[in-house]
């Protein structure tokens, strides 16, 4: 009954808003690539072939080949898994930590609120990309550290959303009622307030995913984190950059294009999700 109504609402929003429907389709496509990339790729993304260096897009190599003769399409496809994986891990990490900190700050107030909010302010005070660079440089050049760095710079957004969403609800009747039903404060936070702040946080996650992908790719672009020959969009753009001037535009154009599409897709998805969960649009 309720699932049905929910589904109907989703269908309505999608039918009402073809752009969102497109974003969802694109998202599904990316997920497919991320999960099954290695099997879908037509060529081995790491296999070099000196006889096919820097070939323009053709029927055999749709996206052309790079300076080592590797198939760019296959590399782009296989890179999806890594880029999405890094972004997802980072976002889940900041979601978990940020929601816990933010929810406690919003619920208990007092010194917890003050210290958590100052922490968020402090992180926000840095240029975020520079902060991420510094973190990776300090922790060491590895994929995990890119994830940590991306998670840390995203933390304030989750803290703020969770804090304000909990704060407006902490005096709601249902919280007081939960107290009378025998809930302890921690249980109220976990079982009553947390489910209620999930919808706005989901929107934040979606918007953040695009940003996290961009951030991970950006760090790789400047040579931090993922190392060649590992296929990764940021590195691929970086590797192709020097060929742009000599006319071999496809080396960095296609990975850049896919990166842009992925970010775009998540941003649209976030807007779509917002419409879907906004109770004012649900009647």
């Amino acid at each position: 009954m309720t699932e049905l109504a929910g589904l109907r609402h989703v269908r309505y929003v999608l039918a009402d808003n073809p752009v969102t429907a497109g974003a969802f389709a694109l998202f599904g496509f990316f997920v497919l690539l991320a999960l099954f990339g290695p099997w879908l790729a037509p060529f081995d993304p790491l296999a070099t072939s000196p006889d096919k260096v820097l070939q323009p897009p053709s029927a055999a190599h749709w996206f052309g080949t790079d300076q080592l003769g590797r198939d760019i399409l296959s590399r782009v496809i296989v890179a999806t898994g890594l880029d999405f994986g890094m972004a997802l891990a980072a976002v889940l990490l900041s979601f978990g930590l940020g929601c816990a900190l933010g929810a406690c700050a919003g619920y208990y107030g007092g010194w917890i609120d003050r210290s958590v909010s100052r922490l968020a302010d402090t992180i926000m005070a840095f240029p975020l990309f520079v902060l991420a660079m510094a973190i990776v440089a300090a922790l060491g050049n590895s994929v995990e550290n890119i994830i940590y760095a991306t998670a840390i710079i995203n933390l304030p957004f989750y803290i703020r959303v969770a804090r304000s969403e909990v704060n407006v609800r902490r005096n709601a009747g249902f919280v007081e009622a939960a107290r009378l039903s025998g809930n302890t404060e921690a249980r109220i936070l976990a079982f009553h307030l947390f489910p209620n702040i999930l919808p706005p946080v989901m929107v934040q996650i979606s918007l953040n995913m695009g940003w996290a992908i961009l951030n991970a790719a950006g760090l790789s672009f400047i040579g931090l984190g993922v190392r060649p020959p590992q296929p990764e969009w940021g590195i691929m753009v970086a590797e192709g950059a020097s060929y742009m001037i000599s006319g071999e535009w496809w080396v960095s154009f296609f990975p850049g294009m896919v990166l842009m599409l992925a970010v775009f897709c998540f941003n649209l998805l976030g807007d779509g999700l917002r419409d879907m969960i906004d109770p004012r649009r649900r009647t």
Partner: peptide, 10 residues
């Protein structure tokens, strides 16, 4: 509670 909407967890 006073307001049945406010006092039920949505």
């Amino acid at each position: 509670f006073q307001d049945p909407t406010d006092s039920l967890n949505p």
